[in-house]
Lab assay of single mutants.
Amino acid sequence: MTYKLILNGKTLKGETTTEAVDAATAEKVFKQYANDNGVDGEWTYDDATKAFTVTE
């Protein structure tokens, strides 16, 4: 299944996707991606759209 990450960081904005077996796996991938790019903020998840959002 495809999951999307929407980044609303102070220095990094954009979107990326990942293929994962479930939302928990996608969340781990996205949190590592955000951490690697220096984005740390409030996380939300919308199951209807399979989209995670992180806002700094």
Rank of each mutant, 00 (worst) to 15 (best):
Glu56Arg: 04
Glu27Tyr: 15
Ile6Phe: 11
Leu12Val: 13
Gly14Ser: 12
Asn37Tyr: 13
Asp22Lys: 03
Trp43Ser: 00
Thr53Ala: 05
Asp36Gln: 11
Phe52His: 01
Gly41Asn: 02
Tyr3Gly: 02
Glu19His: 13
Asp36Asn: 08
Thr44Glu: 10
Asn8Arg: 12
Gly38Val: 04
Leu7Pro: 01
Thr44Asp: 08
Phe52Val: 00
Asp36Leu: 12
Ala26His: 00
Trp43Tyr: 02
Glu56Cys: 07
Met1Cys: 13
Lys4His: 11
Asp47Met: 08
Leu12Tyr: 15
Ala23Asn: 05
Lys10Ser: 10
Thr25Ser: 12
Glu56Asp: 09
Thr25Gly: 08
Ala24Trp: 10
Thr55Ile: 09
Thr53Leu: 05
Ala34Ile: 06
Leu12Asn: 07
Lys10Leu: 15
Gly38Met: 06
Lys10Ala: 12
Tyr3Trp: 07
Thr49Ile: 09
Ala48His: 10
Asp46Ala: 04
Tyr3Val: 02
Phe52Ala: 00
Tyr33Val: 05
Phe30Pro: 00
Ile6Thr: 05
Ala20Phe: 04
Val39His: 04
Thr16Gly: 04
Asn37Val: 15
Lys50Leu: 10
Val29Ile: 14
Gln32Glu: 09
Ala51Pro: 00
Leu12Trp: 14
Leu12Cys: 14
Asp40Glu: 13
Tyr33Asn: 02
Thr17Met: 09
Lys13Tyr: 10
Glu56Lys: 04
Ala34His: 01
Thr11Lys: 11
Asn35Leu: 15
Thr18Trp: 08
Met1Ser: 13
Ala51Asp: 03
Phe52Leu: 01
Lys50Trp: 05
Trp43Ala: 01
Lys31Arg: 15
Asp46Pro: 00
Leu5Ile: 03
Ala20Pro: 01
Ala34Ser: 05
Asp40Ala: 12
Thr53Gly: 03
Lys31Glu: 04
Ala20Met: 03
Asp46Leu: 04
Ala48Phe: 11
Tyr3Thr: 02
Glu27Leu: 15
Asn37Ser: 08
Val39Glu: 02
Asp46Arg: 03
Thr11Asn: 13
Val21Thr: 12
Gly14Leu: 15
Asn37Gly: 04
Tyr3Gln: 02
Asp47Thr: 09
Glu15Ala: 07
Tyr45Met: 02
Asn37Thr: 06
Asp46Ile: 04
Tyr33Ile: 07
Ala23Gln: 11
Tyr33Arg: 03
Leu7Tyr: 10
Asn8Val: 13
Ala34Phe: 03
Asp22Gln: 03
Ala23Lys: 14
Val54Thr: 02
Leu12Ile: 13
Trp43Asp: 00
Tyr3Arg: 02
Gly9Ala: 08
Thr17Ala: 07
Asp40Asn: 13
Val29Arg: 09
Gln32Arg: 11
Thr44Ile: 08
Asn35Tyr: 15
Lys13Phe: 10
Thr53His: 05
Lys10Pro: 11
Lys50Val: 03
Thr17Ile: 09
Val21Arg: 12
Gly9Cys: 14
Leu5Val: 03
Met1Trp: 13
Ala23Trp: 14
Lys31Asn: 04
Leu12His: 11
Leu12Pro: 04
Ile6Glu: 03
Gly41Phe: 03
Val21Phe: 12
Thr18Gln: 05
Asp46Asn: 09
Thr49Arg: 10
Thr55Arg: 06
Thr55Met: 07
Thr25Leu: 06
Thr2Phe: 09
Ala23His: 10
Thr18Phe: 11
Lys13Met: 08
Lys10Thr: 11
Thr2Ala: 06
Gln32Lys: 14
Phe30Glu: 00
Asp47Val: 10
Tyr45Arg: 01
Lys50Met: 11
Leu12Arg: 08
Ala20Gly: 04
Thr44Ala: 09
Ala51His: 06
Leu5Cys: 09
Leu7Asp: 01
Thr25Tyr: 07
Thr49Glu: 10
Thr16Leu: 15
Gly38Leu: 06
Glu19Trp: 15
Leu7Arg: 02
Val21Trp: 12
Gly41Cys: 03
Lys28Pro: 03
Asn8Trp: 12
Phe30Arg: 00
Tyr3Cys: 03
Thr11Arg: 10
Asn35Gly: 08
Gly14Asp: 08
Ala48Trp: 07
Phe30Val: 01
Lys10His: 12
Glu19Asn: 13
Ala24Asn: 08
Val21Tyr: 12
Lys4Pro: 02
Asp46Met: 04
Glu42Asp: 12
Asp36Arg: 10
Thr25Lys: 05
Gly38Lys: 07
Val54Gln: 01
Asn8Gln: 09
Lys28Cys: 09
Val54Glu: 00
Ala24Met: 11
Leu12Gly: 06
Phe52Asn: 00
Asp22Leu: 04
Gln32Gly: 05
Asp47Asn: 09
Thr17Ser: 11
Tyr33His: 04
Leu7Val: 12
Gly38Trp: 05
Ile6Asn: 04
Asp47Gln: 10
Phe52Lys: 00
Asp36Ser: 10
Ala23Glu: 07
Thr17Arg: 07
Thr16Val: 15
Thr2Met: 12
Tyr3Lys: 02
Lys28Thr: 08
Asn35Val: 14
Leu5Glu: 02
